[in-house]
């Protein structure tokens, strides 16, 4: 039976589905008996999702795109 520390150390590979079947099964067994680790797993996953949702929507403003294109055209014409 693995302990909570080991469980948390394995979270990354568990979520990436990179654990050996035996280790994976041990971890699942731990989750069945340990609600705090289940809570930790859920919040760890949610953290990643929340951060992605909030930070991945960076849009380049149209004005910046236009300025950039003008700048590059000017620079290209110098060469």
């Amino acid at each position: 039976m693995i302990c909570c520390k080991e469980c948390l150390d394995l979270l990354y590979d568990y979520l990436d589905d990179q654990l050996a079947p035996e280790v994976h099964a041990n971890l699942e067994e731990h989750f069945q008996d340990c609600p705090p680790c289940v809570a930790f797993l859920n919040t760890y996953k949610t953290t990643t999702n929340l951060c992605r949702e909030n930070l991945s929507k960076i849009e380049m403003p149209t004005a910046v795109q236009s300025k950039l294109l003008e700048f590059l055209k000017r620079e290209q014409s110098k060469d």
Binding site: L8, Y44, T47, T48
Partner: peptide
């Protein structure tokens, strides 16, 4: 990455 996620999870 794991350290970063742990840090962010704690903050959130």
């Amino acid at each position: 990455l794991h350290r970063a996620r742990l840090f962010l999870r704690k903050k959130l």
